[in-house]
Design a protein around this nucleic acid. Sequence first.
DNA 1: CGCACGTGGTTTTTT
DNA 2: ACCACGTGCG
Length: 718
Amino acid sequence: MNSHLLSGLNPEQRAAVELPAQSALILAGAGSGKTRVLTTRIAYLINTGQVSPHGVLAVTFTNKAAKEMVTRLSAMLPINTRGMWIGTFHGLCNRMLRAHHREANLPQTFQILDSGDQLSAIKRLMKSMNVDDEKYPPREMANFISSNKEQGLRAHEVEAYDPYTRRKVEVFAEYDAQCQREGVVDFSELLLRCYELLSRNAALREHYQDRFKHILVDEFQDTSPLQYRWLKLLAGRSNALFAVGDDDQSIYAFRGANVGNMQDLLRDFHVESVIKLEQNYRSHGNILDAANALISNNRNRLGKNLWTSESGGEQLRVYEAARDVDEAGFIVDEIKQLHREGVNLKEIALLYRSNAQSRVLEHALVSAGLSYRVYGGLRFFERQEIKHALAYLRLMENTDDDNALLRIINFPTRGIGARSIEQLQEAAKMNSTTLWDAAARAGGKVSAFVALIESLRSATKDLPLPEIIDHVLEHSGLAEHFKNETGAKKREAEERLENLNELINSATMFVHENEDDSLTAFLTHASLEAGEHQAGDQDDALHLMTVHASKGLEFHTVFITGLEEGLFPHQNSQNVDGGLDEERRLMYVAITRARRRLYLTFAQSRMLHGKVSYGMVSSFLRELPDELLHWLSPRFVARKSFDSYLPPSADASFGAAPAPARADAGIWRIGQRVFHQKFGEGVVTGVEGGGADARVQVNFKHAGSKWLALEYAKLTAA
DNA sequence: CGCACGTGGTTTTTT
DNA sequence: ACCACGTGCG
């Protein structure tokens, strides 16, 4: 009965699916059928009676991936996937913590702080602790706390040898105490708390170890140390951990991912079988050859080479533009041509390293009347009006949630000013209570607010979820507030009202799709699934997104734009250990998104932070074999190498584009290798100013990064 | 309380 | 260039 499951799998995929019940690492290259192997493995285990659906735990990073797995599994097996433990790390930890909230020392209705909530909680705390927010930027503090938790560390476990770090540790400790008082947890707390729950409570740990005979992990290269420890704990001595990942696509080290987990897994789980999935079903040969050539420049790889049974296909098309706007113009022309040839717009992606680059592209697309969609902006549950509505609901659920209270105590305005709020905070601090308790004892407008929340709560006690929300919107004054808006803000307010209505719709959907249709469950859903970027695959529109956001997707045609030294690879990666390698993996991800056609474009100059800046072609382009590239810009037709690169002004014959306004920083360009009498070797990382003020920034091998005034500094090309 | 203006920062991001 | 945030005034 498994023949239909296994048919169509190549030998390696099949070997992975049919592995005996032991831990394994599947090195799955881009486009090698990774998700298919993962889901087929689960179906196979269940079908062969090796495990019941009840005994499987499958974990992913995104809700999208989890959903996809469930959908595919349902198509393969006639089982109810609803109760199965398939989800994100955060989703599964949340589930365990809810089930054992007492043991985890949490209220049953604990709420989840998203990154924005976390930041405001930290700001508030720092104010009350009198911490200087110039010396300790709240954002940095949030990072400090989260990254320590991702390492599995509590405040008292952090090594602090200097007063600066010690102060941060104090805030860390106080922050956790504040969250505990308020009955809220942030994202990393969800994981750490769950880890601690399992590690301290032997009975619980053994219960889950007995249950989950097979643990499957997607995108294993993206796991953090804490996530890995959590997996190890659940796997225990005898369960099988089936990890699928690709070290070459590890692009999230900056947020705590640890590729080293792959090596550790081999050692810790005595993995005998590493299976490599190297056959690619996505791209033509030249695209894969380019990807392979590029990534071979990285050291410390587990080693993998993608191949395809398809033909080589086209060469990669390279285009150099004078300015960013010309780059955009070229892209528009090519897209129009492709569209005429019958390629759907939604089969074309424009990728860039950083979000700011979308602006110029968007401008050109609008002028040309091409429809597009930018992926990755603000998400539904992160919109201001939605967060306000949710804050009412959260406060009704859990009055200890100071964050929620502060957000809405004066929104819409009800005459409770900064002064009254300060008094509340002082009173709460004095009596070590929450703001709600302090508010309950206050009079006047504050007590009216307390009464409002209480009346919302009692009036909605027995209502179904969508009606609760409807009632709150109508009686909190939120809907009213936006309805009354006039003048310049009218349109904006109308949109916000629409979004609030959409919130009711999403609650209706939620009730239909979930067994647990409580308010708490919905609020959790809102925190953990910030809302898919509006779907809408129906209309034919171009895809614009960062390279990061493109991971996992594929397109007929891909444009990788802004291939300039300093942009991609990004100059900030220069100072980070292993930074360049991660940038190269990012480029590898970008290249492997393309099925048939790949454009690589760059510009000699572009607007950056409000100034024109000049860059050199990306070193990544130089790492691609010449024979795979087809130069579309005239300049380089006769030239095979970049070594004789000249500033734009030196070549008057270039195209018809107007010459860019020239910086007097002369011939120095970002990415250029230089030599200085005193500081030695370095690379130009910035160019600015003109005339006597012209300066270049150079990152010296030994002397570090410096700004040099060109009038005085003696720089030579190296 | 709310708006106007000034200032600083500006890679990537899911949960 | 652009946006988010904070301060000071009406």
